[in-house]
């Protein structure tokens, strides 16, 4: 199987290793680096469970090959947690019960964080729109929207 050596920064740490060319980024993070906070739900970019930040932007970890991340900066739910905004989102998700099984939650948090960075005062419709590529099977989405809205409102005041 063809392999390539890659080096990248993951959650602030330099990583260099050889990976099969066909390995996608989320499988690399999960199984090679043990960063199991990003999940696999569909392998076709439809569910958002594998969302990670690649050079600061949300991407589907299942739609990027690990070799394409050579030289890049990757942040996952495990590492992206030192920022106030993400901490606020976590607290609001907890307080408002915006998760049940938690499988979609890392992707929801990273996507919601990106939304609020770009649009600090989104309407509920805008929140739903931005999260519309992240599947949650447990909640009715409403608590998630409530949590994102609550953080936006609290940070605005």
């Amino acid at each position: 199987m063809k392999a390539r050596r890659i080096s990248l920064t993951v959650n602030g740490e330099a990583v260099a290793c050889e990976v099969p060319v066909r390995l996608n980024l989320v499988d690399f993070l999960r199984h090679e680096l043990g960063l199991t906070g990003s999940h696999v739900g569909c392998e076709q970019g439809a569910c958002g469970a594998c969302t990670v930040l690649l050079d600061g932007q949300t991407v589907r970890g299942c739609l990027v090959l690990a070799v394409q991340a050579d030289g890049a900066t990757v942040e996952t739910i495990e590492g992206a947690g030192f920022d106030d905004l993400l901490a606020d989102l976590r607290a609001a998700f907890h307080r408002l019960n915006a998760l049940q099984c938690g499988f979609c939650t890392p992707g929801m948090l990273l996507t919601a964080q990106e939304l609020l960075v770009g649009n600090p005062n989104p309407s509920r419709a805008e929140i739903r729109e931005y999260l519309s590529g992240n599947f949650c099977r447990c909640t009715g989405y409403q608590a998630i929207v409530d949590a994102v809205e609550a953080v936006a409102v609290a940070r605005a005041s």
């Binding site: 970019g45 969302t51 690649l54 949300t58 990027v64 992240n134």
Partner: peptide, 9 residues
């Protein structure tokens, strides 16, 4: 077109 994470790539 799709969703933010896809439009980024």
């Amino acid at each position: 077109i799709a969703h933010p994470g896809v439009r980024h790539r």
